[in-house]
Amino acid sequence: MENKKKKRSRKMLLYVLPAVLVLLAISIYPLIRSLILSLYNYNLLRPDRIRFIGLENFGNAFSDTNFWNALKRTAYFTLFGVSIELVLGMLIAMLLNRKFVGKGIVRSLMIVPMILSPVAVGLVWRILYDYDAGMVNYFLSFFGVSQLAWLGNQSTALLSLIATDIWQWTSFCFLVCLAGLENIPQEPFEAARIDGANRFQSFRYLTLPFMKPVLLVVFTLRVIDSVKMFDLVFIMTNGGPGRSTETMNFFIYQTAFKFFHIGRASSYAVIITILMSFTVSLLVKSLKKGGNDLV
């Protein structure tokens, strides 16, 4: 009996081994390696000065205003962008959550931005935002808005990036919300209508609670994606003008691959990973609660 169990577990181990190996090679090893690197003064241009410095990189990060500003920008980008995407996605989903001719086509068209490569999106939007040749300024001119260098101005550059992100990812929120809405049972709504609830009340007390877990899932996924966002900054502004669009990921990239402070960049990456794990685990926790509330 004992023997059989052992054999069985050994067999099972064999089956999961490939997955474990792959995980070790592409996820665990780099993680450990970056943890180690974060404790070193490691500059590729100064191979003679590579040495262990303990937690110095972390101390420097917290006293570095550029680090804090990059973190703030990422938080701003994420919260601002994701909440608008969520609201818009939900509203559009409610608008389209009914039977009408061509619903399938509308839905397919809605998801086009989402399936485009972010690099292509960045390039296209860079042209759209162009001061002279851009469509944005062209259309705004009909409303009497004077031309603006959207990406060339420190106060509008980050907002312009957020707008592009919203354009691209609202459709994702829409799609998931629509799927959620379609799965809500209709009976409570009928009962509410009989009891004399108005539209807003049935939205507030029925739709929203039903949708809460779905919204939380979308929110979590979008937050993760949004914090990781790099391509739009890289393609559209390269962190500029000045540092106005230098988000955390771009800041790390710059530290590692432009100034070649690999150790310092690793310490930033470790900090952001810890922060993100914390945030996401909080979200997942409330997601679990939200799910329990409903069932």
């Binding site: 001061y131 603006l148 260098a149 990406l151 060339g152 420190q154 502004t237 500029g240 003008p241």
Partner: peptide, 8 residues
């Protein structure tokens, strides 16, 4: 300079 110059 043209307004886009900070990104030139």
């Amino acid at each position: 300079c043209p307004p886009g110059a900070p990104n030139y």
